[in-house]
Amino acid sequence: EQAKRIEPVFNTCCESGKRCSLQLTSKLKNPSSSCSVDVSTVWWEVAGCKTLCILTASEATVSLWKPQDPREWEKVYTWQFTEIPVIQIVPLPDVCNLVCVALGNLEIREIKALLYSAEEKCLQQLRVKAGTIKAVAGLRHRRLVSSCGPLHCQQVELVIVSEAGRRKENLSLMPPEETILAFAEVQGMQQALVGTTVMNNLVVWNLKTGQLLKKMSIGNSYPASICHKAYSDMGLLFVVLSHPHAQENESSGNPVFQMIAINPRTALSIGVMPYCLPHGQAGRILEGEVKGNCAAAVLNSGTIAVWDLFLGHCTALLPPNADGHWSLVRWSDMDSSLLAGQEDGSVFVY
């Protein structure tokens, strides 16, 4: 019956005039109806089988949902948080049976690893990091990077999280003397990490030595840009940025995302590709995610917009549905699924 109620949503594609589609495949409705703060996917062993599951987070709970045929999701575990609210999920790419979450109020105060202990047959939440955490990201190979503390004594730390959810190794990275806003792995370069700062600089670290290799300006067109993804090719560093603080009155012409190429040797950069909304659409990014060659953003209008990074144009628009505006968007870890969340805790899988 639920499958019958789910109808494909087709969206006219933007600049090419071609019809592209986002097809609704399933819907999760959190029975507690608590306000949703984040959604993500994680690999989890279910009945001996590594399965791509969905995580939903409210301020007081994080729930793991396993897929069930057809188009159904079943809640498997729920971790409870009674003292400090959940702010965001911090997935560690390619890690199974473990996920990190950030807890706090206006700022992150704690990062915890969530797992299920088969030995003790109980859900566990173990502290990985505490402090005034300004930015955090999960990296490949069980690594978690975070920046912590006020500017004059900002600490940047890389932690390797063990399978048991504990701090296994850690390395201090040299701080850039500017508050870090976001981190992004450099695809294909395991030891390289980039970050963006409040002064609109891109910084590059060596994760093996902790060295700060370079601080480079990424222009003054948009303040406080956020880095989402980076890769190195032919001696250049390509970085996908978003501009959450673009001026509202200029939002119709501003790119939501932008790819820049920067020469780390000279710190010179150029814009490669702007990712704009289709003609007639306006909006500023509230939040978004880039994975593979896809980018998605929730706009302040409550619409989700999707771009193909190589084609360079918006490939789908998902306007608010009858249930309300969109507040969250994430890409699935494996396939080309898009998770779209609403404030009431509903998650739609396209």
Binding site: N206, Q211, L213, G235, L236, A261, N263, T266, L268
Partner: peptide, 23 residues
């Protein structure tokens, strides 16, 4: 883009910057 836009490009930029940066 060309060298003139971005200056001389090095394929080994990561290793070179690691050698030059303070430890």
């Amino acid at each position: 883009c060309s060298d003139s836009d971005l200056g001389p490009i090095s394929l080994n930029w990561f290793e070179e910057l690691s050698l030059e940066a303070p430890p």
